[in-house]
Design a protein around this nucleic acid. Sequence first.
DNA 1: ATTTTCCCCTGCCGGC
DNA 2: TGCCGGCAGGGGAAAA
Length: 283
Amino acid sequence: MPELPEVETIRRQLAQHVGGRTITDVEVLDPLLVDPEDPRSFEHRVSGRSIEALRRTGKYLFVDLDGGEALALHLRMTGQLLWSASEPLEPTPYARAVFRIDDGSVVTFADVRRFGRAWLLPPGRRDRERAWGGRTGVDALSPGFTARSLQNSLRGRTASVKGLILDQRIVAGVGNIYADEALFRARVHPRREGGSLGADEVVRLHRAIRDRLRMGIAVGGASFDRYRDAHGGRGGMQDLFLVHRRRGEPCPRCRTTIEKGVVAQRGTYWCPRCQPLPEVGEC
DNA sequence: ATTTTCCCCTGCCGGC
DNA sequence: TGCCGGCAGGGGAAAA
């Protein structure tokens, strides 16, 4: 579910409410959330800690705690982080963990499909990097993600360009929705081999990725199904989709019928005219 | 090293 | 109505 714009929306909202405050108590309702850690140990180590900052890289949300440890949260497909000013009257559906804050407010990690995860990262750069591995590359909206770095990542690669921009080590934060939207804006077919893109196409793709992600943030993310922000509200990006989820509808640029297929194991939408796929076989 | 396949979970929708 | 397959915004491990 949540891609970079959705996580950023939640990060900003939570920062307003709980930034600088103390987590008085944590209750892990689903041990799978903190797997493979011992849930009681997780609760013990997080309770009583104050929140120094909320940061984001790609689709990961990091909660810096006093003492140097940090919470890393990933919502995967259906995770939600819901803030409420007081303890909810009824249990939140699919609640996996509850974080109680010193002002009486509550942050609930809810997750239907239970793919979401929380990790407690050790203090110290070296230990943290060891715990983290190379899970995430450069954030798509950071200055480190450039047309040049993208070009270097695509060079020589035969996998589909869509699969490559979904690879979080190449660029962190792009998911299935924004990949389709960015590829359309760049006029690049999702099935093109990464290494086959010309320099102009790479520049367009880099620009389109950033453009669509920024647009997503501006409207509070995309909610066509389960995504909700920290207040339980919906985003507006689903109303601005150009091709994603629009099979059979006319392309907003040339009116050709939008197609759907599977690329990189994901449902994929594109305009066959604006995003041509050169014939691979010899004629 | 890279690419592909399978898997983790639950809910929902369409077809029969 | 009921059952079943397929699909869903994620990523990681294992296999090829």
